[in-house]
Computed example of a mutant assay.
Amino acid sequence: MISVSRGARAGAPKWRSEYRCTEWEPRLVASNPRPLCALVVDDEAPARRRIADLLRDDRDIATVLTAEHGVAAIETIRQARPDIVFLDVQMPGLDGFGVVEAIGPEHMPLTVFVTAYDHFAIRAFEAEAVDYLLKPFSDRRYERTIERIKERLHDRRAPDPADANGFGPELLRLVAKRASPGEIWDWIAVKSRDTTRLLLTEEIDWIEAAGVYVTVHSKGEAFLYRAGLATVASRLDPFRFVRIHRSHLVNVRSIAFLERRSHGEFEVMLKSGARLMMSRTYRGEVEAILGQPL
């Protein structure tokens, strides 16, 4: 089922399936020529109502649409083209990831994922290309989220779109990819004669190139894995592992500290005691994953 609220605006037109929110935005509020349309997707009525009520209290939100499941969400996004979507991750049938895959990451509105579980997705959302709300969330957390979304919408409507903050469809592709088992590795299967050992990727400290293969370092042991460094890097969580050198891939959570060296290079001390060099070529990647300069 799909439903709509006009919010607090008197005289706002009723929503019909053939309308696009953006087509009648300018007629809604004279003081704000670009009011927003938001969609709340959640199979739980109380959760859906709470977010919808918060949105209705926002003077910048002209219209609030709701959907109870993924199929209805897809229909509403395609027909109404909302500016913002609050999308529940866990829903029976078609879940939030399925909605992203069906619409296509490059066509999704600004999306706030809503979830009751602190799993891999939270690390991705904290990158701020999209946002998330972890149930139960406070009003303060919601306010911070909606402020962030409005900033991104303002940037996207700037005269020069090149200056706008990117929404990050590549992140949505990653999120959807993580919903498919085996696409992003949680384990590395190391084979030795008749034995296959499963290494939990979160327990890997670092990986180094060893000719055409790699050596995986975990808990003080080293294991040869028959794949190249670029191949392995493409299957690991990019919010956990970062390239610091053309020959080294490091688990950020294994880093104890970094010591500045000459010519923009750093020596990386791992908690295991291993020392690695970080070349200046990869400094930007490390700063990006940390979200702050070194």
Rank of each mutant, 00 (worst) to 15 (best):
R140H: 05
R27N: 04
L39Y: 01
I146D: 04
M91V: 10
Y213E: 11
V130G: 03
L39M: 09
R56D: 11
I255N: 03
E68W: 00
V112I: 15
L55R: 04
E267M: 13
T66C: 14
G284D: 11
F86G: 08
S254A: 15
V190D: 07
G264R: 05
I2Y: 00
G7I: 12
D53H: 05
R48N: 05
A8M: 12
D42S: 09
Q90E: 12
V41H: 03
A230Q: 11
L87P: 06
F241L: 13
N251P: 02
Q79K: 09
A116D: 06
A230D: 12
L249S: 07
I84H: 02
V232A: 09
D88F: 02
L294W: 01
S17F: 03
Y142P: 13
A45E: 13
T111F: 02
R283F: 01
R280K: 10
R59H: 04
K271D: 06
R173Q: 11
A10M: 09
A45G: 03
H217Q: 10
T22N: 04
R193Y: 02
A230P: 05
F125K: 03
T76Y: 01
P109C: 10
Q90N: 08
G166K: 07
H154C: 14
E25L: 13
L171E: 08
L171Y: 03
P92V: 15
E75W: 00
I61D: 05
E151K: 09
W187V: 15
K177Q: 09
I255D: 02
S31P: 03
I77A: 06
K191T: 14
R197E: 08
V85T: 13
I149H: 02
R152Y: 00
H154P: 04
V100G: 06
L290I: 08
E221G: 09
R123V: 07
L258F: 04
K150F: 04
T22V: 15
R49Q: 11
L174N: 05
D58P: 02
L171H: 03
K191V: 14
V212F: 01
A12L: 13
V286P: 02
A227N: 08
R226P: 07
A47D: 04
